[in-house]
């Protein structure tokens, strides 16, 4: 995959887009522009960018509470996303969902999710629909290390394994479930070990190496498309921020934090080095990408700020399909 310059640049741009959006979202939230919860994806950009680089529009993803990155990587519209964070009528969910529930069903994005571990059964179901319809589309379930302790994880892997469903389980192991370190919420190091219990392949990859992630995901997705069933891919990473904005994350060891944020670990810094090293881009070109993305994000903020609030009567609509 490393020889695919275009793909590498595309994944890099996606990572930058996610990071820029997330940094903006954090600032806006801190400035009191919108309420609720913001779970930042900063530090984990490589996973969404790498996995989604192999997806088509007719593939499905199920996201999490930390969902902005998945949405952006699957092609989500930044303006509609930002307007949703603001709770505006023009947002993806008309302001009804907010950060934790952004969705774009037309893009196969079956939603961020406020319930940890809830995406895995849903992705399993979407994969079932793909197989049932005899299409070669697949479904991806993103979830955290914490979510891998829920029954929904185990039940989904089991069902998907016996029905040979085209679903790929992408575990974003960022070392934490809120304040609970992975080492204290489960008795294993590699979450991919759990695949063994279901007789499916399980691999662990460096979650800050976008190329490694894209390769592992590509293999799993191709396997799923061919009808060979599910795969569990664990991506080991680190969230840069607290669990949600407002969490000072005092439970983190400052040394770990520093190490993970350093350029030799950070996914975007590493990718820049790689692109420059491979002579796929000069620093000025990368800076140009960043500047363009910044403008995109600024335009999204402007769109959101200028958009109207929903009408109060909207509260009563959309409960049932007519």
């Amino acid at each position: 995959m490393a020889e695919n310059k275009e793909k590498l640049l595309e994944m890099y741009t996606t990572m930058v887009r996610i990071r820029t959006f997330e940094q903006k979202a954090i600032d806006l939230f801190a400035a009191g522009k919108f309420p609720g919860f913001v779970h930042s994806y900063l530090g984990e950009e490589a996973i969404a960018a790498g996995v989604c680089s192999n997806l088509r529009k007719d593939d499905y993803i199920c996201s999490t509470h930390r969902g902005h990155g998945h949405l952006i990587a699957k092609g989500g519209n930044l303006q509609l996303m930002m307007a949703e964070l603001f709770g505006k009528a023009t947002g993806y969910c008309k302001g009804k969902g907010g950060s934790m529930h952004i969705a774009d069903v037309d893009l196969g994005i079956l939603g961020a999710n406020g319930i940890v571990g809830a995406g895995m059964p849903i992705a399993t179901g979407a994969a079932f629909a793909c197989k049932y319809r005899k299409s070669d589309s697949v479904a991806i379930a993103f979830f955290g290390d914490g979510a891998s302790d829920r029954a929904t994880f185990h039940e989904s892997l089991n069902l998907a394994s016996i029905w040979k469903l085209p679903v790929v389980f992408i575990c974003e192991n960022n070392g934490w479930a809120i304040s609970n370190a992975q080492t204290s919420h489960q008795n294993i190091t590699d979450i991919s070990d759990r695949a063994t219990a279901y007789g499916i392949p399980g691999v662990s990859v460096d979650g800050n190496d976008v190329v490694a992630i894209a390769e592992a995901a590509d293999a799993a997705i191709e396997r799923a498309r061919k009808g060979d069933g599910p795969t569990l891919v664990e991506c080991k990473t680190w969230r840069h921020r607290g669990h949600f904005e407002g969490d000072p994350a005092i439970y983190k060891d400052p040394k770990d934090q520093e190490e993970w944020l350093a350029d030799n670990k950070d996914a975007i810094a590493r990718m820049e080095k790689k692109l420059v090293g491979l002579k796929y881009a000069g620093q000025d070109y990368l800076d140009k990408i960043k500047a363009e993305v910044r403008e995109e994000v600024e335009a999204a903020v402007q769109f959101a700020e200028q958009s109207p609030d929903p009408e109060p009567a909207e509260v009563l609509t959309d409960v049932y399909t007519a």
């Binding site: 309420p35 009804k96 907010g98």
Partner: peptide, 16 residues
């Protein structure tokens, strides 16, 4: 509350 899920937008939540 009305027979609906709870909306996010502050305007809608206040109406709820």
């Amino acid at each position: 509350a009305p027979d609906t899920p709870i909306p996010f937008s502050p305007v809608l939540e206040q109406a709820y």
